[in-house]
Design a binder for these strands. Sequence first.
DNA 1: CGTTGATTTGAGTAAGATCAAGTCGGGTGG
DNA 2: CCACCCGACTTGATCTTACTCAAATCAACG
Lengths: 244, 244
Amino acid sequence: MEPPIPCSDCPLRPLAAFKPVGPTALAAISGAKVGQRLCTSGATILAEDQATTRVYVLLSGWAFRFKTLEDGRRQILNFLLPGDLLGLQGELLANLPHGVEALTAVNLCAFATDAIPGFFRDNPDIALDITWLAAHEERLVDDAVLTVGRRTAMERVAALLVHLYKRAASAGLVEDGSIGFPLTQLHIADALGLSVVHTNRVLQRLRKGGFIRLDGQRLAIGDLRAMRRVGRYWEEPAPRRPLL
Amino acid sequence: MEPPIPCSDCPLRPLAAFKPVGPTALAAISGAKVGQRLCTSGATILAEDQATTRVYVLLSGWAFRFKTLEDGRRQILNFLLPGDLLGLQGELLANLPHGVEALTAVNLCAFATDAIPGFFRDNPDIALDITWLAAHEERLVDDAVLTVGRRTAMERVAALLVHLYKRAASAGLVEDGSIGFPLTQLHIADALGLSVVHTNRVLQRLRKGGFIRLDGQRLAIGDLRAMRRVGRYWEEPAPRRPLL
DNA sequence: CGTTGATTTGAGTAAGATCAAGTCGGGTGG
DNA sequence: CCACCCGACTTGATCTTACTCAAATCAACG
């Protein structure tokens, strides 16, 4: 339970993955911030189909967005890593069309939802950044549709692992060739439209083929090139992204 | 090949589905418009992975966004109907991560991509509308992930047909209980992650069950309630949406 | 008529789901 | 310390959904 971090000391901003921000924009962001929020692993950050009063930036930890069918079938839409914005759809659309759940303990930077129209009025650069982030997230979901709709189970798992590894890497989370990996096999299954059992078997094939090391809570990818080939997954190099 | 329609006479704006727009915003939009573009059915409106110079609003006709794997497997991400914005991701991200193809003859209203930053600078209401449209499209794609990942083939087809029927309806395209329906079974299959053959059989089941009438180019849904039940598909009532 | 695109039908198959146990490791309480 | 519980992971057996391949039909069109 650390004290709130001032935006000027944000641990994320120095990372190469993020676009530098000017002093006026930083002041505007800092001024709109209304606090921080901590969630424990497994907590519901935002409930499905609910009106929201906050928009958050993920400071640390992992989370995911999901939707469920009334009979309980769950689909994970995408994963959220440090720097990601969440809850924007709740502000723009009437209410949030999906839920958000924490995968690990999570530290969130909170903004009042009415800060958004404020940014658009007074700070076009930030407004454009917000729209950029929205477009970027849509790109991720577009990829998810392609993966779930047209890739084989093996391709899906490989593509997801590469994708998450690279994102974790650009958030500075690699330690001696591996990342902390908080997903259970059920999460992988729910993200990829597979059953847990089948997911388990595919993971074993990847392990036995020497493509990955995945024990307990850490993931290492031996040969990234090979994994990309298995997953038929080539994403363009990540551009420097804005950080709210 | 009609002459360009001035924004003030836009045939879409009077529809109840669209949010009214003030005179200054209308003037700004009108001023940014650089022309119209006609495409024939089947034409590529925007190519995959390409830098773009234009953003379009679909004035009339149907189109779809898609991605392909290098071996030819194609996934349709969502369908575009009159009033939809396309090409925004090409402006914000470096280049367009998906292709856009016309399903019917299509009439597009063109804006130079650099009109977007201009809107953000000078016209916060329009900027917010653009972001709203982006968030709304993401919602559609989120739904697509849920459909493809967790619904059965029967549910997928039923949900898609209801979805498209309702959207066509709100674009004013219903004529005596049916809509013009330009998708082939291959399009349906590619949108839903199914094979054409299986799609065909599911459609036949829906027809024989009396749920739909789908002959050649027209779709009618007998009992919408029943179809929603089959598809496990309940969307929230469509809000009035902005039109660029 | 011949061609072409869309749809339909049949037969065989494979990918992945379901069901049912069983293992393993890390708490927790007695 | 040990029994036990619980969640995550594994494994095997069986089954089903939806895919593949192949071919026929059908309508529109030049």
